[in-house]
Design a protein around this nucleic acid. Structure first.
Lengths: 204, 204
DNA sequence: ATAATAGTTGACTATTTAGTTCACTATGTT
DNA sequence: AACATAGTGAACTAAATAGTCAACTATTAT
């Protein structure tokens, strides 16, 4: 009973966009409220603080992204193809953002994590949790590729960490330089790290 | 003639530390002044704004770092050893920061660039300039390694970009997770990307 | 219909922040 | 010695910001 509202969702959407296009530190509660079309009283009805909202928004955004990743990293797909699809998907997203905002925005979790990890421990934990999920997707693909004899990777977790570092680093470079072209051959770098043979690259 | 002062230097040192241990957005001019032991009047005597100070501090810090890199990337050193030394140096720096601040701080330019690139174009340009320098150090090492038949890298610029993305990504991961161990085998990942053979890894 | 309750509003306070001003002080130069 | 000037400091303003509150409104369950 009582009134119903989508203000909470609107606030999470607003902060997500502001964090991605700008930064955590430069985003104010007033700005979030204005973008969401919500008054400050309502903001504090739903959330305790900016960091509280950010944690919830991060979580919600990741839930949605995860369904996409479940599809991409489906065990039904050839392991190296999963990685290729992931790179293609990522490139497409960045291209869309560039169209929409005139800027390459990179990875929202990574940029946020780097910014606030020394200041906001709850946010840092949430980001770490999400990055860990990403690593696991990659890890199982690497493990399957190793098991299938496509690559030599006796330590899939280590390889996945390497791939993730490269992938996130590249996205961040693209954000800093505002250039999607940097992401064109993401998969090439990953396959080089995995020691995928040229022939397999062509076939897969 | 007139009075002399090191307040300008103290301000640059203060902002460098605050940016690295925290973030651009969370660092206020009052905070910078307090840490530097400088009154606001003096701040505005030397600088126009926080971003102005940040640009100058970034530049000054890079000048110092560059002399170190000139030594590490000396053409007198074997090309793959340059890269190895660079990774060792970087690891050492991060370890020192962890000792000093209790936190792994990653790469100051990269974190700052990711944070402010959509908001502060002068800072974004300065960061890009610095990252470009880093890439050039790597590029010449890769080119020399290729010329020496140690690796196969017909496009050294592309390989250098890949290495830099991985390197910066790894540093950022280490910052987010506050864990230096992530950086232990940085060189291993780079050599994998370069396709350095195991034997050469052991020898070099 | 109405009572209970989920959500809204705008006006409010207190604090932090960026940036200014101007009289003052210390120091190198002549 | 004294002058020109680089740098200092403290008090100031104006704006932005986080956070509060109590009266109000819409909805739903009974």
């Amino acid at each position: 009973m009582g009134r119903v509202s989508d203000a909470k969702t609107r606030l999470m959407d607003a902060v997500s966009e502001l964090l991605w296009t700008g930064s955590y530190g430069s985003t104010t509660i007033d700005q979030i409220c204005e973008k969401a079309g919500v008054k400050k009283g309502s903001f504090y009805y739903f959330f305790d603080s900016k960091s509280d909202l950010a944690v919830e928004a991060l979580d919600a955004g990741w839930q949605i992204r995860q369904t996409e990743l479940d599809r991409i990293f489906s065990p039904m797909v050839l392991p190296l193809d999963r990685i290729r699809k992931y790179c293609e998907f990522s490139y497409k997203v960045q291209l869309e953002m560039k169209e929409k905002y005139g800027r390459v925005l990179g990875c929202p979790q990574f940029a946020l994590g780097a910014e606030v990890c020394t200041l906001e421990s709850r946010l840092q934990k949430k980001v770490q949790e999400i990055l860990d999920c990403k690593r696991k997707y990659l890890e199982s693909a690497v493990r399957d590729a190793h098991a299938g004899g496509l690559i030599k990777a006796p330590d899939p977790a280590a390889k996945a960490r390497m791939i993730l570092a490269y992938y996130e680093g590249l996205l961040t470079q693209a954000r800093i330089q505002n250039d999607v072209e940097i992401l064109r051959d993401t998969v090439g770098g990953i396959f080089a790290m995995l020691g995928v043979k040229e022939t397999e690259t062509a076939i897969a």
